[in-house]
Nucleic acid binder design. Structure first.
Lengths: 135, 135
DNA sequence: TTATATGCAAAGCTTTTGCGCTGGC
DNA sequence: GCCAGCGCAAAAGCTTTGCATATAA
């Protein structure tokens, strides 16, 4: 049967192909934040015939459909994760590179206030914290 | 006489060439967050012979020397500003690409609280807002 | 003088796209 | 059957780099 993400795609009314099903399965099975190359490699292990152009096109489709979320961690390529209902930001351990997800409603509210005060409607934001573990 | 940024470069012990002086002057005169292409065009107006490769190389040098700061606002190219002591974050107009600087103490405080709650000491952060102008 | 910087053009990397063919629905 | 999706390869956009020449210290 289909993966969790495949179900979401169907709910969103997306046309499902074998390649899209493969990519959804790969993403459902991933617990990290893979880039396109990694998704492509993992998908190739299931379907050796898949094209990287299809991976790019599908990642874009899934992102536009809010099935996945795209991140730019500054290393030159996009990285992705499943789109969860709760919005979360990231805290990076600058020693280990580990990424921790967190949510904070108060910060979100303040961001909107800041934007409004400057005459803008907030469309999106990027918040990354960098820290070291307290022993 | 030299530009403000040129003085800083000299203090940092950087070898100064005519091209680097030109780029420093351009950056000193810029109040926005230009990308390499813009710096190149502005520099070309002063020295038509300058190469974009030199601009790229110089921007990297200046960034590594903490003379300027590099930003990635997610539009695929790097943008730069003078490295100032006061910390500020950015709001980007997703229609015009214009970047507005702001500071917000309350958000900074909350970020520290979040990090602490997760067992981390906050070392740095990156906050970017994306919005559209309210008419 | 001599190492370093520059200019030019080529190449690298990620991502997108044109086009003819395949395959969902 | 038809239109959307796919694979392939070419190209686009930003950035880096190899090499011969020019220049700062």
């Amino acid at each position: 049967m289909g993966s969790r993400l495949e179900q979401i795609c169907i709910e969103r009314g997306l046309k499902m192909t074998e390649q899209r099903r493969t990519i959804c399965r790969v993403l459902s099975d991933s617990n990290d934040h893979p880039d396109v190359e990694q998704v492509y490699r993992r998908a190739s292990a299931i379907d050796a015939k898949i094209s990287i152009a299809t991976v790019y096109r599908t990642m874009r489709l899934l992102e536009e459909s809010n099935v996945i979320r795209k991140h730019d961690f500054g290393d030159g390529r996009a990285r992705f994760e499943e789109h969860s209902d709760d919005h979360h930001d990231h805290l990076m351990d600058i020693n280990s590179g580990e990424v921790i997800e967190f949510t904070n409603e108060a910060i979100e509210k303040l961001q909107e206030e800041v934007a409004k005060k400057l005459g803008y409607k907030l469309i999106g934001h990027k918040l990354e914290l960098y820290g070291v573990k307290i022993k």
